[in-house]
Each structure stands twice: as C-alpha cells, then as structure tokens.
Design a protein around this nucleic acid. Structure first.
Length: 577
RNA sequence: UCCCCGGUCGUCUAAUGGUAGGACAGCGGCCUUUGGAGCCGUGAAUCCUGGUUCGAGUCCAGGCUGGGGAGCCA
C-alpha cells in the first residue's frame, strides 16, 4: 500500500530555491553587485537552546538557508548558548533534528557561542585595556536606577572611572571565581545619556556560578548575548546577520563592539517575526502549555512546534512553501492559519494515498445483497498520480458509513443518503435507502436499510442515470478498528495577541482542540502502516499514523480536514434561519 | 514622556517616480465516481493633510496610528 512516511525531507525542489522578492534579498543582491564581502553570502540560524523550535523559527530557517542556497553561499547552525541557567542539551538535540527534518544542511558547520568563550574573554580584556570597559560594583537594582528613564539620561556609575589596571585585576578575579553571583559586572563605557538604552553602559559579563551544558564548570562569568552575538557572527565570517525586529535597537551596540575590536563586520538586517492566528508562538507561552499540562508535551500534535506539527502529519515541503509564500518585511502582521493549511493540502493532495475510513460509524445493511458474498472492489490509490496504482477493498452485505452521510429529513442542498434516495457507494454500487431502524426509547438511528442495483457494480448505471452523491464506506466484518484523534485550533481567539501580558492567555484555549473517536473504522489495506504514514481518508481529511499506534490498536491523527463545501452551505443556511 | 521601526484589498505581500498586481480567505459558476482536486469568473486596498513633480503608494513636511525599547534574558 503506497503511503509516505515522516522521513521524506531531502533536496529542495527547483522552484523552492527561486524566491519572490523581499527586502532582505534585495539588500543582499545589492551587496553582491557592489562587491561587498567579496560578493559572498554567508548566513546563519542562531537559536538559543532553551526551548523547542516552532513554525516561527521555520520562517527564519527557510530565510537564512534559502538565501545561502539561492546565492551559492553558506549557512551555519549556531547555538547562542550564553545563559547556562536556561539552556539544555535536550533542546540542542531537538533543534538539530528539527532543522534537518525541515530539509536543511549546515554541512558540518555546527557551532556554539560557547565555542568562543575564550576569545570573547580576550576581547573583553582588550576593551578594558583600551579604556572602553570597566568593572562595576553596583547591584542589579542600582544599575537599573542609574540607567535613567526614556526621557531622562542615566547617571554614570561611581566605578566608571576606575583605572585600567584595577579593572584588569578585578576582571581576572571575577573570572577566577573570587566574587559571588551578582556582586560585580563588566560594563562597556559608552554613553549614559544615549537615547538608546542599549548604549547606556551595557553589561558585558555577569558572574554566574552555574554549570554550562557544554563548558561545564570552566567559567563562572558568562558573556551577555549582546557581547557575544555580533562577535560570534564576526568569527564565523557571516556576511548578513539576519535577525528579528526587536534587535534593531541593539544594532548600534553590536556595531560599536565590532568597531572598537576592529574585527570583521557583518551587516545586520532585521525582519518581522511570524505571527499565526489561533496559536501562540512565544517560547514562554509554549513552555507554560507544556509545564501546566494543557498539552501532552512539546510534540503534542496541537502545538505549533516543529516536533508537534511533524507528529500531526505536516510535511517539510509544505512548511517550506508556506515560509516562502508569506514574504519578509518589517510589518507586524498576523498570517491566517488557512494559508498554512492551503500549502499543506496542496502537498498532501499530490502525495497521500487515498483510503476509506469512517470516523463515526453507522450500520448500513443491503437487504438484497447475498448474506455471505464478499466482493473485492478496485479503488484508485491517488487520482492525482496514476503511478500509485490501485488496490482492492472488500465489500459485503453489512457496511459502515459516516453517520453524517445520512439525514432522515434532508435539508435543502443535502445530496447524501436519506429515505428513498439513491446514492453511490464509492467504487461499489448504487444503493437506495428503503427504511431505517431506530432505538424506540432514544430515537437514535441504529441502522439504515438499502437495496442495491447489481447492474451498477463499480459505480455506473448502465441506463446512464446519475446520482448526486458518492459516499464512502467500509465493510463491517473486514474493517479495522482505530482511534481517530481530531484536532482543531489550540486557541479560539484569532489573534492571541501578546499585548495583554496581565491577562491569562490560557483563557482562550479551545476546549475542543482534541476530540478522540475511539471506535472509528478503516479499510484493511492500512494494516501494518508505520507511524508517520500519511493518507487521505476520502471525503474526510488527511491523517497520519501516530507514534502511539500499535499493531493491536491503530491510532490516526487528523492532520487537516478536506475543504468542506457542504459544511459551508450548512453554516450559511443556519445563519439565515 | 524620550528613542527606534512600521502603516497597500478581510489577511499576507508586490509595484524601487510612470496602467496598484499576486496569493490565501470570501462570493458566483463549470467540471467531478471524493460536496476533494482542478478550471473559469468576481468583489475588495495605497492612514490623513499639505508640498515637490508633467506624473507620488513611492520623495519632503506635519499629523494620526500600530509595534519595539528602561534584564546581570535572548
């Protein structure tokens, strides 16, 4: 049975490399043409290993690796691990796996800011020697007070004019571990009156007697991100340091360090981070969802993490195409989730094998069909791709159909089964509903009875009569049981907005983001499907085998629904009445 | 309050002083053994006010408005 599993990332298609115009790309093209950086392009993706990657990171990954690919350059993977208190190896591993799964290759250029701790320290000494850095004994709170406010300049630290030798001595002793956490910092001597807070003598090094995930206990002072990032890019020979908007105000500081140090100076370019409707893309909020148990983990299929949407059944191709389609700018916007789903369906439609599965089964008995007869009906695996072939699906007297495919009292424009109406059973026969059996007490429909027309095998009537609808089915005695996990958006609010920090963002969590259907039925051809295998359940949606699935108990995740025209009609009918 | 960056269809984005275009979403239709897919069509935008110019979404000025910024986080 053809299907495709979760491990299909690989070479990018031709058309993925040719990108639409965006301002970052334009700037790079300008640099290539002017011969800046000798016409080279070298980017990097620099995550902090303090959480799992999400779809927002995918945008940055696709941008950085994509630009390198397009212009014959390189892209590094570098972990900005300057804060030992928040970073863990678990995150490093997941990030590596996710970038690879997305389909990108850093060709062995895997680096860590912590690789540069010695160099960074030397540079700190150099700036100190140059009189451009000093050891400050102010407490964190005092530093904040001295920093001033947006409208008033800050005040200079009383330690600002310590002699160079004293600074050098103190810095060395900070490194040697003579002082407790928080007792001193190394600061840049820039301008306490700058309207840009980043230039008001920013901290370069802090004392942190903490074990680092890579350097262990070698250091008890750690560079601030601001003192590490620009230089790390410089060391790696990065030409274009692409980062998000919130670092725009930091650029003058990075420039200052690079200039005072007299080292290679990359061009920083800031772009807008991705926002998506009906979800959250902030590490803090995602962490909260995991830690407070709102989801089952970082890879819960409802999470916007790469591990989550991978488990959900999203493909790397769809994510890449999505990222390339959303554009890159400096506008703070929100992308509608439907755009992501569009690219997903477009990809899955071409590749996913079709199969028939019934999520909410309703018995259908064909009264005039022989009791013991079983026929094998031929079904196409993918109408979009003849090469995927056909399969045989068992058909018998007692079938299971989707409960939603029958209405005792059909509304206008409802073409599916109802009393007296004839419909087609996909790849099988035309059947006409004769009567139904209900539970006397509850009124629940227990069984549909039909007659079939033996002359319509395969689905066509020799007399040329047409039916308005085709429905899917499984043979009750041949179908496999499975658990269907139906997902909806994690949040009800379209815009989960980061604005109301005081407000509890979990208030708009969708209580129905996961619905489990434990007694769904599927045709036997999927027997033995491996976790990650993707299918289209005809007329229902795209599904993939979850990693919880076992030979005894199949579990499928609904990746995304098929577009549902009837649901739309029904909705507008309800809105009118 | 001070600094920085933005503002083009519902949403995202293109137009680099010269016909405001595309995608998604919406709506209408065609086709269909998936109410899927596909195809065709359609409505829909330059924040405001001035200025420069033969010509302004684009340049200038002022305003309005959104985002970011006072971590020993990144």
């Amino acid at each position: 049975m053809p299907s495709f599993s979760s491990n299909e990332s690989g070479a990018l298609a031709e058309d993925e490399v040719a990108r639409p115009s965006n301002f970052v790309r334009d700037l790079i093209i300008g640099d290539i043409q002017s011969g800046r950086f000798a016409g080279k392009v070298h980017t990097r993706f620099p995550p902090e290993p303090n959480g799992y990657l999400h779809i927002g990171h995918a945008k940055s990954i696709c941008l950085n690796f994509g630009l390198a690919l397009e212009f014959g350059g390189k892209c590094n993977l570098r972990f900005d691990d300057t804060n030992p208190c928040k970073e863990e190896t678990e995150y490093v591993e997941s990030i590596i796996e996710d970038v690879r799964w997305l389909g990108f290759d850093w060709e062995g250029r895997l680096f860590y800011a912590s690789d540069y701790f010695d160099q960074l320290y030397e540079w700190a000494v150099q700036l100190t020697r140059q009189g451009q850095a000093y050891v400050c004994d102010l407490t964190a709170e005092q530093i904040r007070e001295y920093r001033g406010t947006p409208s008033e300049p800050g005040r200079e630290s009383p330690y600002r004019n310590r002699p160079v030798e004293e600074n050098l001595n103190l810095l060395e002793r900070m490194r040697a571990g003579e002082f407790p956490d928080g007792s001193r910092t190394l600061r840049s001597k820039i301008d306490m009156a700058s309207p840009n807070f980043n230039m008001r003598d920013p901290v370069m090094y802090r004392i942190l007697h903490a074990e680092h995930h890579r350097t262990g206990n070698k250091w008890c002072i750690y560079p601030m991100y601001d003192f590490a990032h620009g230089q790390s890019d410089s060391i790696e020979g990065i030409t274009h340091s692409i980062c998000t908007l919130e670092f725009e105000d930091h650029r003058p500081l990075y420039d200052w360090y690079l200039d005072k140090l007299g080292i290679h100076h990359p061009q920083q370019i800031e772009f807008d981070r991705l926002n998506l409707t009906n979800t959250v893309l902030s590490k803090r909020k995602l962490l909260t969802l995991v830690q407070k148990g709102y989801v089952s983990g970082w890879d819960d299929p409802r999470m916007p993490t790469l591990s989550g949407i991978r488990r959900r059944g999203y493909t790397p191709e769809a994510i890449r195409r999505f990222c390339n389609s959303i554009g890159v700018s400096k506008t703070n916007g929100v992308i509608e989730y439907s755009l992501l789903e569009h690219h997903l369906r477009e990809d899955l439609n071409k590749r996913a094998a079709r199969v028939m599965a019934v999520i909410d089964p309703l018995r259908l008995v064909i009264d005039n069909y022989p009791d013991d007869l079983v026929e094998e009906m031929e079904a196409v695996n993918n109408p979009e791709d003849a090469a995927m072939g056909t399969r045989r699906v068992p058909f018998s007297k007692v079938l299971l159909i989707e409960r939603d495919d029958f209405r005792e009292d059909p509304p206008k424009q409802y073409y599916r089964l109802s009393p007296g109406r004839e419909v087609r059973l996909r790849y099988a026969y035309l059947v006409t509903c004769t009567h139904i059996v209900k539970d006397e007490a509850t009124g629940e429909i227990l069984e549909i009875h039909c007659t079939y027309d033996p002359a319509t095998r395969g689905g066509n009537a020799p007399d040329g009569r047409k039916v308005k609808s085709t429905i899917h089915w499984v043979s009750a005695s041949h179908a496999l049981d499975f658990e269907a996990r139906l997902y909806d958006t994690l949040f009800l609010d379209v815009n989960t907005g980061e604005e109301n920090e005081a407000e509890d963002f979990t208030a708009s969590l969708n209580p129905n983001s996961l619905q489990v259907r434990p007694s769904a039925k599927i045709e036997p051809s999927v027997q033995g499907a491996a976790p990650g295998a993707r299918y289209q359940f005809e007329r229902v949606g795209y599904f993939c085998v979850d990693r919880d699935s076992t030979p005894e108990k199949l579990v499928f995740n609904r990746t995304v629904q098929l577009r549902d025209t009837w649901a739309k009609i029904e909705k507008s009918q309800k809105a009118k009445s």
